[in-house]
């Protein structure tokens, strides 16, 4: 297995506050990594690093063997807890968005046969996430779970190298959350995705991931708690997960 994503001695500091220190890890293609940790342990910062919303203060992050650009790009798809879909576009248009940006640099819109082909792909993707009956519906009229399904379809259609999930099921009802667990596991196997998921739900982390990373501070100075940052304190590979 080759490392798809690797962190080498990564530090993140804000002024004299250290958030992440000495993070060294690598993620293989096809892995489903759950990231857990207490509030303030740098889970969000970790995700922002991978997304490219932030650059490390020190250290290197490689994606596919090349240094990661500190800017979000189409090699990394994302689903946030909220606000992941565009409220002014209906379900199909939301999924079409990426394809249209790819196909029409100037207008950001496809027409004619190109649009029909792209639309067919978008519809197929929506059917795969169980939204085949809600093609023309705006996000505001979709339930929370359906909005997350839409956000997943929107990200997956661009075939990202890594799919980042930021507390994706945190705002959902328990029943809906179970359905979503089934959906994401199926998608992971079918599309052989590489997934990084941040969650605060430890059961969810162990249920879904084939590897669980716990971020926390290894050292603690009671007089200056901000001087020590978090790193991966536990790294559990879960061998019993059947991989597709």
């Amino acid at each position: 297995m080759t490392a798809l994503l690797s962190f080498r001695d990564v530090w993140v500091e804000y002024g004299d506050k250290i958030v992440l220190e000495r993070v060294n890890l690598s993620v293989e293609a096809g892995a489903f990594v759950s990231i857990v940790g207490p509030s303030g342990a740098g889970k969000s910062t970790f995700l922002r690093l991978v997304l490219g919303q932030e650059a490390p203060t020190r250290g290197v992050i490689d994606l596919d063997g090349a240094p990661l650009r500190a800017e979000p790009g189409r090699d990394r798809g994302v689903v946030f807890q909220r606000y992941s879909v565009f409220p002014h576009l209906n379900a199909v248009e939301n999924v079409l968005f990426g394809l249209e940006c790819e196909g029409a640099a100037l207008t950001g819109r496809l027409w004619g046969p190109k649009r029909r082909t792209a639309r067919e792909r978008a519809v197929a993707m929506l059917e795969a996430v169980g939204l085949g009956a809600a093609l023309d519906v705006f996000p505001a009229q979709l339930s929370g779970g359906m909005q997350q399904r839409l956000a997943i379809a929107q990200a997956l259609i661009m075939r990202p190298r890594v799919l980042l999930l930021d507390e994706p099921f945190g705002a959902l009802d328990p029943g809906v959350r179970l359905d979503m667990h089934g959906l994401i596991t199926d998608l992971w196997r079918e599309h052989s995705l590489t997934i990084l998921m941040v969650t605060h739900d430890i059961k969810e982390a162990f249920k879904l991931g084939d590897r669980v990373l716990a971020l926390d501070k290894r050292r603690h100075d009671p007089h200056a708690p901000h001087r020590y940052g978090s790193t991966a304190v536990y790294d559990f590979p879960l061998e019993n997960k059947a991989r597709g």
Binding site: F80, F86, C101, G108, A155, M158, P160
Partner: peptide, 20 residues
Amino acid sequence: EQIVKGQTLGASTWQIALRV
């Protein structure tokens, strides 16, 4: 989140201005 999502879908500054 929307602006970041747009970028992860490959949109340029111009496309985000125009379509988001």
